Amino acid sequence: MELNHNHAETLAELQELIDVVAKLRSPNGGCPWDLVQTPETLIPYVIEEAYEVVDAIQSGDQAAIAEELGDLLLQVVLQAQIASESQQFSLKEVAQGISQKLIRRHPHVFGDVSVQNADEVRQNWEQIKAAEKGEPTPENQQMSAKLSRYGRTLPPLMAAMKISHKAAAVGFEWENIDGVWAKFHEELGEFQQALAKETPERQQAELGDLLFAVIQLARWYNLDPSAALQGTNQRFVQRLQKMEAVVDRPLSEYSLDELEMLWQQAKAQLAQEL
Protein backbone atom coordinates (compact mmCIF):
# COMPACT_ATOMS: atom_id res chain seq x y z
CA MET A 1 0.00 0.00 0.00
CA GLU A 2 1.41 3.35 -1.06
CA LEU A 3 1.53 5.98 1.63
CA ASN A 4 0.25 9.44 0.89
CA HIS A 5 2.26 12.50 1.89
CA ASN A 6 0.44 13.05 5.21
CA HIS A 7 0.89 9.42 6.28
CA ALA A 8 4.59 9.58 5.47
CA GLU A 9 4.98 12.74 7.56
CA THR A 10 3.11 11.13 10.44
CA LEU A 11 5.37 8.07 10.36
CA ALA A 12 8.43 10.33 10.22
CA GLU A 13 7.27 12.26 13.31
CA LEU A 14 6.53 9.02 15.13
CA GLN A 15 10.02 7.75 14.30
CA GLU A 16 11.49 10.97 15.65
CA LEU A 17 9.62 10.45 18.92
CA ILE A 18 10.95 6.89 19.12
CA ASP A 19 14.49 8.17 18.51
CA VAL A 20 14.13 10.91 21.13
CA VAL A 21 12.95 8.43 23.76
CA ALA A 22 15.75 6.03 22.87
CA LYS A 23 18.25 8.88 23.33
CA LEU A 24 16.76 9.78 26.71
CA ARG A 25 17.25 6.15 27.77
CA SER A 26 20.76 5.87 26.36
CA PRO A 27 23.50 5.09 28.92
CA ASN A 28 25.72 7.38 26.86
CA GLY A 29 24.44 10.89 27.33
CA GLY A 30 20.86 10.05 28.25
CA CYS A 31 18.72 11.68 30.92
CA PRO A 32 19.46 10.53 34.51
CA TRP A 33 15.75 10.69 35.41
CA ASP A 34 14.63 8.63 32.41
CA LEU A 35 17.40 6.09 32.96
CA VAL A 36 16.25 5.16 36.45
CA GLN A 37 12.62 4.66 35.45
CA THR A 38 11.04 1.21 35.35
CA PRO A 39 7.62 0.07 34.11
CA GLU A 40 6.44 0.12 37.71
CA THR A 41 7.71 3.63 38.56
CA LEU A 42 5.95 4.98 35.47
CA ILE A 43 2.51 3.65 36.48
CA PRO A 44 1.45 6.91 38.20
CA TYR A 45 2.36 8.87 35.07
CA VAL A 46 0.33 6.55 32.82
CA ILE A 47 -2.72 7.09 35.02
CA GLU A 48 -2.13 10.83 35.38
CA GLU A 49 -1.69 11.38 31.65
CA ALA A 50 -4.83 9.39 30.86
CA TYR A 51 -6.85 11.58 33.21
CA GLU A 52 -5.32 14.72 31.72
CA VAL A 53 -6.43 13.54 28.27
CA VAL A 54 -9.97 13.14 29.61
CA ASP A 55 -9.86 16.61 31.18
CA ALA A 56 -8.64 18.14 27.91
CA ILE A 57 -11.37 16.40 25.90
CA GLN A 58 -14.01 17.64 28.32
CA SER A 59 -12.65 21.18 28.03
CA GLY A 60 -13.00 21.12 24.25
CA ASP A 61 -9.61 22.79 23.85
CA GLN A 62 -8.19 21.16 20.72
CA ALA A 63 -4.62 22.33 21.36
CA ALA A 64 -4.77 20.89 24.90
CA ILE A 65 -6.20 17.61 23.59
CA ALA A 66 -3.34 17.25 21.09
CA GLU A 67 -0.76 18.07 23.76
CA GLU A 68 -2.17 15.65 26.32
CA LEU A 69 -2.51 12.86 23.75
CA GLY A 70 1.18 13.43 23.04
CA ASP A 71 2.02 13.05 26.73
CA LEU A 72 0.04 9.81 26.83
CA LEU A 73 1.72 8.57 23.65
CA LEU A 74 5.08 9.26 25.31
CA GLN A 75 4.16 6.84 28.08
CA VAL A 76 3.39 4.12 25.51
CA VAL A 77 6.67 4.68 23.66
CA LEU A 78 8.65 4.86 26.91
CA GLN A 79 7.20 1.60 28.21
CA ALA A 80 8.00 -0.09 24.88
CA GLN A 81 11.53 1.34 24.89
CA ILE A 82 12.24 0.00 28.38
CA ALA A 83 10.88 -3.42 27.42
CA SER A 84 12.94 -3.51 24.22
CA GLU A 85 16.15 -2.91 26.18
CA SER A 86 15.74 -6.34 27.78
CA GLN A 87 14.43 -7.97 24.59
CA GLN A 88 10.90 -8.42 25.98
CA PHE A 89 8.99 -6.60 23.22
CA SER A 90 9.20 -3.41 21.19
CA LEU A 91 6.83 -0.78 19.89
CA LYS A 92 6.62 -2.88 16.73
CA GLU A 93 5.00 -5.75 18.65
CA VAL A 94 2.71 -3.31 20.47
CA ALA A 95 1.41 -1.80 17.21
CA GLN A 96 1.28 -5.15 15.44
CA GLY A 97 -0.64 -6.72 18.31
CA ILE A 98 -3.34 -4.09 18.50
CA SER A 99 -3.76 -4.03 14.69
CA GLN A 100 -4.24 -7.79 14.57
CA LYS A 101 -6.62 -7.67 17.52
CA LEU A 102 -8.77 -5.02 15.85
CA ILE A 103 -8.92 -7.06 12.65
CA ARG A 104 -9.87 -10.26 14.53
CA ARG A 105 -12.53 -8.54 16.62
CA HIS A 106 -14.14 -6.71 13.70
CA PRO A 107 -15.07 -9.57 11.35
CA HIS A 108 -17.98 -7.45 10.14
CA VAL A 109 -15.42 -5.00 8.72
CA PHE A 110 -12.50 -7.24 7.77
CA GLY A 111 -14.43 -10.49 7.19
CA ASP A 112 -17.80 -11.69 6.03
CA VAL A 113 -19.81 -11.42 9.26
CA SER A 114 -22.97 -9.30 9.18
CA VAL A 115 -24.19 -7.23 12.10
CA GLN A 116 -27.33 -5.17 12.57
CA ASN A 117 -26.32 -2.73 15.31
CA ALA A 118 -23.71 -1.71 17.87
CA ASP A 119 -25.02 -4.23 20.43
CA GLU A 120 -24.22 -7.10 18.09
CA VAL A 121 -20.73 -5.66 17.55
CA ARG A 122 -20.18 -5.63 21.31
CA GLN A 123 -21.47 -9.20 21.71
CA ASN A 124 -19.19 -10.45 18.92
CA TRP A 125 -16.25 -8.59 20.46
CA GLU A 126 -16.79 -10.24 23.86
CA GLN A 127 -17.21 -13.70 22.36
CA ILE A 128 -14.06 -13.38 20.24
CA LYS A 129 -12.16 -11.96 23.20
CA ALA A 130 -13.20 -14.87 25.42
CA ALA A 131 -12.20 -17.39 22.73
CA GLU A 132 -8.78 -15.75 22.34
CA LYS A 133 -8.11 -15.98 26.06
CA GLY A 134 -9.61 -19.46 26.47
CA GLU A 135 -12.16 -18.09 28.92
CA PRO A 136 -15.92 -18.51 29.20
CA THR A 137 -17.99 -15.89 27.44
CA PRO A 138 -19.09 -13.04 29.76
CA GLU A 139 -22.56 -14.50 30.23
CA ASN A 140 -21.02 -17.82 31.31
CA GLN A 141 -18.35 -16.42 33.61
CA GLN A 142 -18.67 -16.73 37.36
CA MET A 143 -19.70 -13.48 39.02
CA SER A 144 -16.50 -13.33 41.07
CA ALA A 145 -14.37 -13.48 37.92
CA LYS A 146 -16.23 -10.58 36.37
CA LEU A 147 -16.06 -8.46 39.50
CA SER A 148 -12.39 -9.23 40.04
CA ARG A 149 -11.58 -7.80 36.63
CA TYR A 150 -13.44 -4.57 37.43
CA GLY A 151 -11.41 -4.23 40.62
CA ARG A 152 -8.14 -4.68 38.74
CA THR A 153 -8.76 -2.52 35.71
CA LEU A 154 -11.04 0.38 36.70
CA PRO A 155 -10.41 3.41 38.94
CA PRO A 156 -11.51 2.51 42.49
CA LEU A 157 -14.69 4.62 42.61
CA MET A 158 -15.81 3.42 39.19
CA ALA A 159 -14.95 -0.18 40.06
CA ALA A 160 -16.92 -0.05 43.31
CA MET A 161 -19.98 1.32 41.51
CA LYS A 162 -19.72 -1.33 38.79
CA ILE A 163 -19.23 -4.14 41.31
CA SER A 164 -22.20 -3.06 43.40
CA HIS A 165 -24.46 -2.74 40.34
CA LYS A 166 -23.54 -6.24 39.13
CA ALA A 167 -23.97 -7.76 42.58
CA ALA A 168 -27.35 -6.10 43.00
CA ALA A 169 -28.48 -7.42 39.61
CA VAL A 170 -28.18 -11.01 40.87
CA GLY A 171 -30.02 -10.29 44.12
CA PHE A 172 -27.17 -9.32 46.45
CA GLU A 173 -29.09 -6.27 47.56
CA TRP A 174 -30.89 -4.57 50.43
CA GLU A 175 -34.69 -4.62 50.52
CA ASN A 176 -34.94 -0.86 50.92
CA ILE A 177 -32.90 2.30 51.44
CA ASP A 178 -33.19 1.97 55.24
CA GLY A 179 -30.90 -1.06 55.05
CA VAL A 180 -28.32 0.92 53.10
CA TRP A 181 -28.33 3.74 55.64
CA ALA A 182 -28.00 1.22 58.46
CA LYS A 183 -24.98 -0.28 56.73
CA PHE A 184 -23.43 3.16 56.33
CA HIS A 185 -23.82 3.94 60.05
CA GLU A 186 -22.48 0.49 60.94
CA GLU A 187 -19.37 1.04 58.83
CA LEU A 188 -18.92 4.56 60.20
CA GLY A 189 -18.93 3.18 63.72
CA GLU A 190 -16.43 0.45 62.86
CA PHE A 191 -14.16 3.02 61.22
CA GLN A 192 -14.27 5.26 64.29
CA GLN A 193 -13.51 2.27 66.52
CA ALA A 194 -10.59 1.27 64.32
CA LEU A 195 -9.17 4.79 64.49
CA ALA A 196 -9.26 4.61 68.28
CA LYS A 197 -7.95 1.09 68.84
CA GLU A 198 -6.70 -0.68 65.70
CA THR A 199 -3.60 -0.82 63.54
CA PRO A 200 -3.13 1.46 60.48
CA GLU A 201 -3.82 -1.55 58.26
CA ARG A 202 -7.15 -2.19 60.01
CA GLN A 203 -8.00 1.49 59.89
CA GLN A 204 -7.46 1.55 56.16
CA ALA A 205 -9.59 -1.54 55.67
CA GLU A 206 -12.44 0.02 57.63
CA LEU A 207 -12.08 3.26 55.65
CA GLY A 208 -12.50 1.21 52.48
CA ASP A 209 -15.65 -0.40 53.87
CA LEU A 210 -17.05 3.02 54.77
CA LEU A 211 -16.35 4.40 51.29
CA PHE A 212 -17.99 1.35 49.74
CA ALA A 213 -21.07 1.99 51.87
CA VAL A 214 -21.18 5.60 50.66
CA ILE A 215 -21.07 4.32 47.08
CA GLN A 216 -24.07 2.07 47.82
CA LEU A 217 -25.98 5.16 48.91
CA ALA A 218 -24.97 6.89 45.68
CA ARG A 219 -26.22 3.93 43.66
CA TRP A 220 -29.57 3.84 45.43
CA TYR A 221 -30.06 7.56 44.84
CA ASN A 222 -28.87 7.31 41.20
CA LEU A 223 -25.88 9.58 41.82
CA ASP A 224 -22.43 9.33 40.23
CA PRO A 225 -19.80 9.26 43.03
CA SER A 226 -16.92 9.95 40.63
CA ALA A 227 -18.64 13.01 39.19
CA ALA A 228 -19.66 14.11 42.69
CA LEU A 229 -16.09 13.95 44.01
CA GLN A 230 -14.74 15.64 40.89
CA GLY A 231 -17.20 18.48 41.40
CA THR A 232 -16.18 18.83 45.04
CA ASN A 233 -12.51 18.96 44.06
CA GLN A 234 -13.25 21.70 41.54
CA ARG A 235 -15.31 23.73 43.99
CA PHE A 236 -12.58 23.46 46.63
CA VAL A 237 -9.99 24.83 44.21
CA GLN A 238 -12.35 27.57 42.98
CA ARG A 239 -12.94 28.73 46.55
CA LEU A 240 -9.21 28.83 47.21
CA GLN A 241 -8.79 30.91 44.04
CA LYS A 242 -11.38 33.37 45.31
CA MET A 243 -9.63 33.56 48.67
CA GLU A 244 -6.22 34.15 47.12
CA ALA A 245 -7.67 36.88 44.90
CA VAL A 246 -8.58 39.08 47.89
CA VAL A 247 -5.71 38.50 50.33
CA ASP A 248 -2.49 40.49 50.57
CA ARG A 249 -0.24 37.73 51.91
CA PRO A 250 0.08 33.91 51.72
CA LEU A 251 -2.86 31.98 53.15
CA SER A 252 -0.47 30.21 55.55
CA GLU A 253 -0.04 33.51 57.41
CA TYR A 254 -3.74 33.79 58.28
CA SER A 255 -5.34 32.36 61.40
CA LEU A 256 -7.84 29.53 61.22
CA ASP A 257 -10.70 31.91 62.05
CA GLU A 258 -9.60 34.29 59.29
CA LEU A 259 -9.35 31.44 56.81
CA GLU A 260 -12.85 30.25 57.72
CA MET A 261 -14.23 33.74 57.15
CA LEU A 262 -12.49 33.99 53.76
CA TRP A 263 -13.74 30.52 52.88
CA GLN A 264 -17.36 31.39 53.62
CA GLN A 265 -17.06 34.62 51.63
CA ALA A 266 -15.67 32.71 48.64
CA LYS A 267 -18.38 30.08 48.95
CA ALA A 268 -21.11 32.75 48.96
CA GLN A 269 -19.56 34.56 46.01
CA LEU A 270 -19.41 31.42 43.90
CA ALA A 271 -23.01 30.59 44.80
CA GLN A 272 -24.10 34.01 43.50
CA GLU A 273 -22.25 33.41 40.23
CA LEU A 274 -24.21 30.21 39.46
Rank of each mutant, 00 (worst) to 15 (best):
G179V: 04
A63I: 12
Q230N: 13
G134K: 02
E190A: 11
S86P: 00
K133A: 13
Q241C: 02
V180R: 08
P225F: 05
M161D: 10
L42F: 00
L274T: 12
N28T: 12
V237H: 08
L240G: 01
V94C: 08
T41V: 07
H5E: 15
H5T: 11
Q203C: 11
D224Q: 09
A227N: 08
R122T: 10
L274M: 07
K162S: 15
S59P: 07
E206K: 09
E9W: 08
G208P: 00
E187G: 03
Q204H: 11
Q116T: 14
A56C: 08
A130F: 08
P44G: 02
Q96G: 12
L24K: 15
L24T: 02
S114D: 11
V214F: 11
Q75G: 12
S252E: 10
M158C: 03
A80W: 05
E135N: 02
H7K: 10
S252H: 04
Q87W: 08
A145D: 13
E173I: 13
E49I: 01
P27F: 09
A169H: 09
W125I: 01
I177V: 15
R105I: 08
P44I: 04
Q75K: 12
Q15E: 14
R239V: 02
Y150P: 00
Y221G: 03
V94P: 04
A64H: 10
R239E: 09
A194E: 05
S59Y: 04
N117A: 09
L207C: 07
L69N: 05
G111I: 09
E67A: 13
E9N: 12
I57N: 01
N117H: 13
P44C: 02
A56D: 06
L69G: 04
L91E: 06
Q127Y: 07
H5R: 13
A168T: 08
N124A: 03
G171V: 04
P27S: 06
L188W: 10
K162N: 10
T199C: 03
K129R: 12
L73M: 12
E93C: 04
E173Y: 01
R235K: 12
K162G: 00
A131Q: 14
V113K: 15
L17T: 07
A227R: 11
A218P: 00
Q193T: 11
A64E: 14
L223W: 03
Y51D: 15
L91R: 05
E120L: 06
D248M: 03
K267N: 12
W174S: 12
E93I: 04
M158E: 15
D112L: 09
L217G: 09
